[in-house]
Simulated scan of single mutants.
Amino acid sequence: MRHLLLPAAALLLTAPAAPAQSTPWQGKQCAVVLTYDDALDADLDRVVPALDSLRLRATFYLIGSSPVVARRLEEWRRAAKRGHELGNHALMHPCDGTRPGRSFVTPDTDLSKYTVTRAVQEIRATNTLLTAIDGRTTRTFAYPCGDRTIAGQDFYAPLKADFVAARGVSSGLPSAAQVDLTNVACYSINGQSAAYMLDLVKQAQQTHTLLVFLFHGVGGGHALNVDAGAHRQLLRYLKAHERDIWVAPLVEVAASVKAQQAAGTPAR
């Protein structure tokens, strides 16, 4: 029997190892999405050049009525041509003025005084504007101030067919199966260090999850701000680890998640 067992043992020793189970993020460890809200001058002055210099792409959530959109429309168009997503952040950026800390909300932009019909119409009008800028019909939405309801009614429900996904403001690192495409989790950055942001990326790498960053001002330009140097360190890390990290606009990552969920991809 010995002469029969030895070849079998040798075969087991020399057989190739089974391939590691692939992750759902384009075969990489995780996905990281960079999002920038409110259509700021800083986006075009500092963020887009920084991203383009490293060939990284992101999502910029534009407010349809923003003067920075009207005044710098051609620059937004060029950014879209370079692969950045122009996302929908509503026409007037309405927020619920009845909630604490909302003294900045004016009567004209108070979501609590809206109807669902008005909210839907304004968001769809913003889609029309964005299509006129970038020629695209597929994009994502971001809830202004993270508010999702009007008088207890979900105003995004009638808009699900208009978008691939909607980004919220609650934090989390979901697996592909756990991503809520009607309220995608994110980490809002306001003054946190580069070390904090890099730790989040490393957590996403270790857990094979989705990490979405929410930025406003970068190097100034908004009350919510991140230091330009810290932001640059984050981008450089993402570029240096692009073999392991899928960095893409939310519209692309959400489309992949949607397909994976439809196919029944298990949580990881």
Rank of each mutant, 00 (worst) to 15 (best):
A15N: 12
E74L: 13
H241T: 09
R232Q: 15
A254D: 04
M92H: 13
V179N: 02
A18K: 13
L54T: 02
L173Q: 02
S112I: 09
H84R: 03
A165N: 06
D41R: 15
A166V: 02
G135H: 02
T182D: 14
R243N: 15
V226Q: 08
Y143L: 01
F163D: 00
M197Q: 11
R2T: 15
L111E: 11
N127M: 01
D41Y: 10
G64P: 00
R57L: 05
M1W: 14
R55N: 15
R118Y: 09
M197N: 09
Q203W: 07
A230V: 05
T207L: 05
T126E: 03
E75R: 13
Y143C: 00
A263I: 10
L111D: 08
N127T: 01
G97S: 12
V116N: 12
A176R: 04
A42E: 08
D227C: 06
L40S: 00
A230L: 05
A157C: 02
F215A: 09
A262V: 10
G168V: 02
L214T: 13
V169Q: 13
A195G: 07
A176E: 02
D227S: 10
Y156P: 02
A240F: 07
L40G: 00
V47R: 08
F163N: 03
R57F: 05
T109P: 06
P158Y: 03
D37V: 04
L5Q: 14
D110R: 04
L6W: 14
R78K: 15
Q205N: 07
L34F: 01
L54W: 01
Q153K: 15
R71C: 08
H231V: 12
R136I: 01
G27R: 10
L214A: 14
M92N: 15
V68M: 12
S53L: 11
T23H: 07
N88Y: 05
A166P: 04
A254G: 06
Y156I: 01
I189C: 00
V48E: 09
R57Y: 06
E242I: 10
R139M: 11
L181Y: 05
A259S: 14
V105R: 03
E85G: 00
E242M: 14
G217S: 10
G264N: 14
T140F: 06
A80F: 00
T117L: 15
A248S: 12
C186D: 02
K160S: 13
Q153W: 04
A58Y: 08
V212I: 08
R139N: 06
L54R: 10
R139G: 06
E85D: 03
S175E: 01
S53V: 10
L181D: 01
T115G: 11
